[in-house]
Design a protein around this nucleic acid. Structure first.
Lengths: 200, 200
DNA sequence: GTCTATACTGTGATAGAC
DNA sequence: GTCTATCACAGTATAGAC
């Protein structure tokens, strides 16, 4: 902690490096990202990166770990709260907010979740996503129900996170608040089980 | 063409190498795939790979190019056929069949479409997907409508192609025919505009 | 804390023997 | 057509100056 109370809002080097790494991992992929590129992007040398983070893996852990913590917490709350329609609605809202607030990290572990299998932080992410599927979907759900779930969550995730591929630049400019409302609407339609939707 | 009419059904080396490359690209990513790994996986040497394909890029082109051709053809038919509900229903069916028949290639260019931006074959894929969004979605569509489209196609694509992340192993064992029906059902519900679905 | 210098490994690609 | 040998280069990581 700084001795001067009016410390300038200068960000710490480790934070700059972590942010630069996250952007690289999300846009060009973990394997294709070099420590040199990350260092250049943040304005440091390659060795400085390895001073703050012991390895490239450690940098990945620092970059996406907090987002996975948040996802696990989100899931824990939902499991504890039961599967009522009201609880599901709350969860949908929080899930969309999570996606909006963690785009780069989500993009990283969703798109590369299987190519990076074996790294501890990635295993944690995959386990959380698996648990998400199990808890929101009833045990005796039909294949159509499971597909509905898969399309909803995967579609929402992918639309938000890699939307640039599927939507034009115009759509990218919509305010987050509008995107949030539209996504919650579509997800509710697909996931809420309270109404008398036909099973098939 | 062989001089012997009863030529054995032995696959050609270039085909074996292309298939091995496709599997590597889809599972560990293009950047993380080495020519050595691909060669080992197919039972050849690294130099043999570079004899059949001039470069790693050329190998990617050969691996996913045909699938992109098919996607472009699919899209061309749809644009030519109009946007009636019947035409949309036909398109949905063909799109799901395309996904089922081209899982590895689709996985590759969907998951790495932006990290590999610049490669000609990837640009072709991204352009096709962009055109897909523009043509199935009405020009004056609301954000909610656009989200519905994005969630549907992205969700279907991702569910089929990287389903292992979101569904358990059990679901992976469902017959493709059942998965096909379930997916068509969910997509129809989200995309068909004939019924009096509320705009918001 | 940040840098330069360096070690070592593995990469994509080429040349040439067979 | 397939191989071994080799190249130039980029990758992660370490050691040590300041």
């Amino acid at each position: 902690m700084p001795t001067d109370a009016s410390v300038p809002p200068r960000v710490r080097a480790s934070d700059e490096l972590r942010q630069a790494a996250l952007e690289q991992f999300a846009t060009v992929g973990f394997a294709a990202s070099s420590l040199q590129q990350i260092a250049d992007h943040a304005g440091y040398s390659k060795s400085s990166v390895l001073y703050h983070y012991a390895s490239k893996e450690a940098l990945l852990e620092a970059a996406i770990g907090p987002s996975i913590d948040r996802l696990e917490s989100l899931l824990g709350d939902f499991v504890a709260g039961g599967r009522s329609a009201a609880a599901q609605a709350v969860f949908i809202e929080r899930f969309v907010d999570f996606l909006l607030g963690n785009r780069l990290a989500v993009h990283t572990f969703v798109n590369q979740g299987q190519s990076l299998r074996g790294l501890p932080v990635i295993e944690r992410a995959n386990t959380a996503i698996r648990g998400l599927a199990d808890s929101i979907c009833a045990d005796d759900a039909s294949l159509a129900e499971q597909m509905r779930f898969g399309v909803a969550l995967a579609g929402a995730t992918y639309t938000l996170v890699a939307g640039a591929t599927f939507l034009d630049d115009d759509e990218q400019q919509f305010a987050d608040a509008d995107v949030r409302d539209a996504l919650i609407s579509v997800l509710s339609e697909l996931l809420l089980t309270a109404d008398g939707r036909p099973t098939r």
